[in-house]
Design a protein around this nucleic acid. Structure first.
Length: 662
DNA sequence: AAGACGGAGGTTTTT
DNA sequence: CCTCCGTCTT
């Protein structure tokens, strides 16, 4: 009784918030928010309040009696998912747990369902990243006595496999279609890789989606469970879904067709990853009764910035026609700065940032974007020299650092004893005298006994099961046995025990000049601690899964007062009052690999468009006459895109330019 | 059979 | 500039 009264009070507070929330929305936004059943497509221009619409719709559904657990929302990054969850919780007081990336949602589903497939994988599977995929491929080919056809590198093969999975197509089929020589051999190599993955109880990124689609397709009763569980499905950034994600969506959406997708064809920038924006273009063909809402009013940028963006994107021939407008009239001019060298480019940006900072702007309000990660170097140097605090997004991820990967490998063999890639890594670190030949022997002996390599090494009868082992191998087996005796819960204790038993920290502490490594290990432990606090009953497997699926952008910190440095790709979905785009040069933006291919150039234009539309108040485009690329100084030409911008709005500036005409 | 050393080659964007 | 591969030595 008392409880009920309390609930009523909470409910009425919710309604008040809900009313406030709906108040500022435009008519078309309201239409998107208050849509209840059936398919809906929201074409949301940059800065049109898309995130707000999606979160409001979730909150609206919840306040109309839909349980939060019945709403499945899939986003592009973990950061976007986190924001969405936080906003929904702030509005409704309810936790929207089923909000995540495609990959993290599928990983979670597969923890329950992967064993249905009966391919030998268990719920303790490991997720391999691209470099681990390549390692798996190399080992698989070696073990099966196969060689890739000449001209195809492991890296290229991994990309081909990924592409095939993303299109849900056989590798043989794709290799034939792409005119590879010897497609049969390629298919054989791919099968060898798949078998090895299964043997390792591992999946690659694409498998998370692919295997989940298999589960839903092969087990109709399972599909029904999901349909009953998820009454409403929402997908964000729909323009960046690939065919596999599309099929997964079709399988997940139940008979009520309660599918709500949002996206912007002009911001489709991941075609190289298999994204197919015909998915968004043909949504109304898939669902002829779909309601379509287009959001064209921009709440983010000044008219000046929008004029530049609109005029640029008009040059794309193949596009869904729409035009952004705003009521934020005027604004600062957009600058097009010519500099002499890439160092001057960085210097100009730093000076500009410092003067904005002196005028009272926060550093967190400024961001520098570039096309390629390698451009960050010159910028970073200038930021260090000028003592401007910055945060770099991208490049080498935290979890990709050597020492962090070493620790991860140790943790992974605790959870998944079949993980040969991690075992190999651990052997390379600690197994003095244990090389790949020995490990192969161990693997064969393990197979003969019907257990995994790690289980054999950790076995109390290792000596009798394996036969004569070298002292080095015996010591290594003992280390594995000690590691395997560590309890997996709580996670923090497990990690600290692993550090102690393995002596990993000492290993780096003894190497000179490696304070950073030790610091990274400490940061890792800090992350584990935070995970433990956020997920009190989370186990090591869950922690490892989370770590495998984080992107660098997920760590973007908007609170601290840092300037943000990142690629144009990473900038999608964000906004900053002041934006600098560096290296607006032919060959860089558009990138040289795209030149000559009209479709690729259109995608480059969209990449530029995404960068421009991040800016709220100030926008500066820079290009240099010379640039150090691959350790060589090259003469550069301004991007052809600059000529497409409205001349009367863009103000040209020069810095450090020699022999300037006019 | 492992490990160290030297040379060559390759760098768009990332869940 | 940094990683991967192959060869040579122990």
């Amino acid at each position: 009784m008392r409880l009920k009264r309390r609930n009523n009070r909470i409910l009425s507070e919710k309604r008040v918030l809900m009313k406030d929330m709906l108040e500022g929305l435009t008519e078309s936004q309201l239409e998107a928010v208050m849509h209840r059943d059936g398919p809906m497509l929201v074409i949301a221009g940059a800065g049109s309040g898309k995130t707000r619409v999606v979160t409001c719709r979730i909150a609206y559904l919840i306040s109309n009696g839909v349980w939060p657990s019945q709403i499945l929302a899939m986003t592009f990054t973990n950061k976007a998912a986190r924001e969405m969850r936080e906003r929904v919780e702030a509005m409704t007081g309810e936790q929207a747990r089923q909000v995540g990336t495609f990959h993290s949602c599928c990983a979670r589903f597969l923890r329950r369902d992967i064993e249905l497939l009966g391919d030998g994988r268990t719920r303790d599977f490991t997720i391999y990243d691209t470099s681990e995929q390549q390692a798996t491929l190399k080992k698989a080919l070696e073990a099966d006595n196969l060689k890739l056809p000449p001209g195809l590198t492991p890296r290229g093969m991994q990309a081909l496999i990924s592409q095939a999975k993303g299109q849900r197509r056989a590798v043989l089929d794709l290799a034939c279609a792409n005119n590879y020589q010897n497609p049969e051999l390629i298919a054989k190599c791919a099968e060898s890789y798949e078998a090895r993955l299964r043997q390792c109880n591992a999946v690659d990124f694409d498998d998370l989606l692919l295997l989940m689609a298999d589960v839903l397709e092969r087990f109709p009763e399972q599909r029904e469970i999901y349909h009953n569980r998820f009454r409403y499905v929402l997908i964000d950034e729909y323009q960046d879904t690939n065919h596999l994600q599309y099929e997964l969506m079709r399988l997940l959406v139940g008979p009520g067709d309660n599918i709500h997708v949002t996206g912007d064809p002009d911001q489709s920038i991941y075609s190289w990853r298999g994204a197919d924006y015909s998915n968004i273009m043909s949504f109304t063909k898939d669902y002829p009764n779909a309601r379509v809402v287009t959001l064209e009013r921009n709440y983010r940028s000044t008219q000046t910035i929008l004029d530049v963006a609109n005029e640029l994107i008009e040059h794309n021939l193949n596009r869904y026609e729409k035009s952004l407008y705003t009521e934020n009239i005027g604004g600062y001019p957009v600058y097009d700065v010519t500099v002499g060298t890439d160092r001057q480019e960085a210097e100009w940006i730093c000076r500009s940032i410092l003067s904005l900072n002196e005028e009272g702007n926060n550093l967190r309000d400024m961001a520098v974007f570039y096309r390629t990660n390698s451009q960050s170097r010159a910028l970073e140097e200038a930021f260090v020299t000028n003592q401007i605090p910055y945060q770099l997004i991208g490049g080498l991820r935290f979890y990709d650092r050597k020492e962090v990967k070493d620790l991860l490998a140790l943790l992974r063999i605790l959870v998944n004893p079949s993980d040969l890639v991690s075992l190999e890594r651990v052997a390379g670190l600690f197994g003095k005298g244990v090389g790949s030949t020995t490990l192969t022997k161990v693997m064969l002996a393990a197979r003969a006994n019907g257990i995994s390599s790690v289980e054999l090494l950790a076995h109390e009868d290792f000596a009798s099961l394996y036969g004569r082992a070298t002292p080095g191998l015996r010591r290594f087996a003992e280390l594995i046995r000690n590691l395997r005796s560590i309890p997996l819960f709580p996670v923090l204790e497990a990690v600290e025990m692993v550090l102690e038993v393995s002596g990993l920290k000492d290993l780096y502490a003894n190497e000179v000049d490696d304070e950073e490594r030790v610091a990274n290990i400490e940061e890792f432990v800090g992350n584990v601690n935070r995970f433990g606090a956020e997920h009190p009953d989370g186990d090591l497997a869950q922690f490892l899964e989370e770590v495998s699926l984080v992107a660098d952008i997920d760590s973007h910190d908007e609170e601290s007062d840092f300037v943000t440095l990142m690629t144009l790709h990473s900038s999608k979905g964000l906004e900053f009052p002041y934006v600098y785009i560096a290296g607006v040069e032919e060959g860089l933006l558009p990138h040289s690999n795209a030149l000559g291919d009209p479709e690729a150039v259109e995608e480059e234009r969209r990449i530029f468009y995404v960068g421009i539309t991040r800016a709220k108040r100030g926008l500066v485009l820079l290009h240099s006459q010379t640039r150090f690329l691959w350790n060589r100084c090259d003469y550069r030409r301004p991007s052809s895109f600059l000529a497409e911008l409205p001349e009367d709005i863009v103000t040209r500036l020069f810095y450090g330019v020699r022999g300037r005409k006019k």
